[in-house]
């Protein structure tokens, strides 16, 4: 087991590059996926699908290495047996029933026949297709096909599932259902999720952290659960009482203070120093703190900027 796996990393990507002729699909990508739900965010062509297919061993990187659940992609067969994958484009056999497909995919990933039949019923129930399980897939709506696609990806009880643009082509109601299902995977069913999307809201609603890809490179990583703004070492404070006295006291503690409308912007060497300084300046000046928040851009603003 690699050190990353020992440390709990689900996926460890180290210096991965992939070219198709003159097109650079992935350019020296390195990342460690430790969260239970991680979003890959980027515009079309940013390299999301290439990165996901590399994790599955479907694409061999030109350079670098990938480890999935402690296994290198030279063990792609074993990885694919333990992982679930939901492709971006519909690739379901139209002439099969949902139940037959899910049973078949379970068997292909190593489930004994009897277990595959039982689990097919369970996962089709989970995705809300228990009533339609005996219908041919060609009679399904796009939303039902996507849910069938999700069911086949989790039928074999994978530790992790890779979802490539799961909301693609869905109407608002179908998208809502799919996002709820995706969130359930990591939150309730104990399945780690790596989901790609070019829609920021989809990732924010379903994931714990996000990797932003642009032109084949990871240009930003961000945890999503902690705060709604990026911590850049600057805070906004709203003072009750003598704001000038607070500013003077803060300046005396080595902090840079400047007014911003009703707020004061306070900057220091690092986030902890700023927070300690604000506390001490408030005590020293006798001012009260009405509100205190990071002054960085919102996470949405930051990610949109990174996507470019």
């Amino acid at each position: 087991m690699s050190a990353a796996a020992a440390a709990g990393a689900l996926v460890e990507i180290d210096g991965v590059s992939k070219r198709y002729g003159d097109v650079v699909a992935l350019d020296d990508v390195s990342a460690s996926v430790t969260e239970r739900a991680v979003g890959l965010l980027g515009a079309n062509g940013a390299g999301k699908s290439t990165l996901m297919r590399s994790m599955l061993g479907l694409i061999r990187p030109d350079e670098g290495s990938i480890s999935v659940m402690g296994m290198g992609i030279e063990h792609a067969w074993d990885i694919r047996r333990r992982l679930g994958y939901m492709p971006e484009h519909s690739s379901l056999p139209m002439g099969m029933t949902a139940r037959d497909l899910v049973v078949h995919m379970g068997e292909l990933r190593g489930l004994p026949r009897r277990v595959a039949v039982l689990r097919a019923s369970e996962v089709l129930f989970q995705v809300g297709l228990e009533e339609e399980r005996s219908r041919l897939i060609r009679t399904f709506s796009v939303g039902m096909r996507q849910r069938t696609n999700l069911a086949q990806a989790i039928v074999h009880s994978p530790a992790m599932v890779i979802l490539d643009e799961p909301t693609n082509g869905l109407d608002p109601a179908g998208r809502e259902e799919m996002l709820t299902l995706v969130r359930r995977l990591s939150a309730d069913l104990g399945i780690a999720v790596i989901m790609s999307s070019h829609v920021l809201e989809d990732v924010v609603r379903t994931c714990d952290s996000v990797l932003v890809l642009r032109d084949g490179k990871i240009v930003a990583t961000q945890r999503l659960a902690q705060a709604d703004r990026v911590d850049n070492g600057e805070v906004q404070v709203q003072i009750i009482g003598d704001a000038d006295a607070f500013a003077t006291a803060a300046a005396a503690l080595g902090l840079a203070v400047r007014p911003d409308g009703e707020w004061l912007l306070v900057r220091g060497d690092d986030a902890d120093a700023v927070l300690r300084g604000v506390r001490d300046a408030a005590i020293a000046s006798g001012a009260g703190l009405h509100e205190l928040r990071p002054a960085g851009p919102t996470i949405e603003q930051s990610l949109i900027g990174a996507i470019g």
């Binding site: 078949h104 068997e107 004994p112 369970e122 129930f125 074999h156």
Partner: peptide, 29 residues
């Protein structure tokens, strides 16, 4: 407890079983 979704921890069949599954499903269809 939500018993509608369980995790499977049992043995998983190998490559030959996967090939056989593909063969018999394809032949039947």
């Amino acid at each position: 407890v939500d018993t509608a979704f369980t995790t499977y921890q049992g043995p998983r069949a190998g490559r030959l079983a996967a090939i056989w599954s593909l063969a018999h499903w394809s032949a039947l269809r």
